[in-house]
Amino acid sequence: MLKTDRLTKRFGDKLAVDGLTLEVESGEVFGFLGPNGAGKTTTIRMLAALIGPSEGSAWISGLKLGDHDDAIRSRVGVLTESPGLYDRLGVARNLEFFAALYDVQDIPGQVEKYLRMLGLWEKRDDPAGTLSKGMRQKLAIARALLHEPEVLFLDEPTSALDPEAARLVREFLTTLKQEGRTIFLCTHNLDEADRLCDRIAIFNTRLLALDTPTALRRKLYGRTVVFHLAGSDGRFAETLEPFDFVHSVQTMDNKLVVTLEAPETQNPILVRALVQAGAEVQFVGEVRRTLEDVYLQLVERGEAGSDSGKTSR
């Protein structure tokens, strides 16, 4: 559906996007995470044929960027950083204008469909400027969907929204995901990305990592298991360290925090070894790393893009 090959953008001497290579499949919700100034918006603008790349290529629905820009624009939908609504115009009039620009056949039908879907039908004649922030954002998403685009680019759809408004937008995105839409989602909200995205790219001018949220956690941290013991004894850590599949062991009070590959098969071996060493194992649990841990770790490291294009999907 979407493919980039060493996509690069420079503004004068400043490198905004450096050799981005990735693929997004049809029906996939693809998260694009990165700090402010990482080049996320520039990437979306290139992929939506708003600005041209300095080097590299990209294809959207098989159409090459730079060769078929008008056709690409008609096949993608873009939610820009700011809703960009005409405040004096009515809610429906805002959508009608864009529907006409995109040559939508049944303009009244499409406008009604999305206004009803978003709960804005009753407000169709109200000036867009009178809507709350959350409603404005939903209206802007509706605008991006009116022409039923093959790929939907969303640039920070919930930023600057209060929690309630953000929840409304997130629920709508969940609906779109269930409909099987292809979505390229730029977000700062890591929990949102974790819940919505099939795969996530962590990006800071260049691609730092690309995989499913679960695989990213696993790649970076392995899997972490905590053994709760009755009483504290440092020698039990030494019992586990010799095992090849154990990456690290830390003792914290009466707990052993162990990083390993496959708890399902390896936990019983470790439990047996601990019991044989005299430990009383009270219970065992797995620690789930948050995507935030992964994100911060990768961005801080500025890890080389060795994972570019690879995926465990």
């Binding site: 708003l50 624009r73 820009t80 864009f98 620009l101 802007a140 605008r143």
Partner: peptide, 11 residues
Amino acid sequence: TRTLEPVLAAP
């Protein structure tokens, strides 16, 4: 008023 970018994104 930030309304230009959505227009430029249209065909």
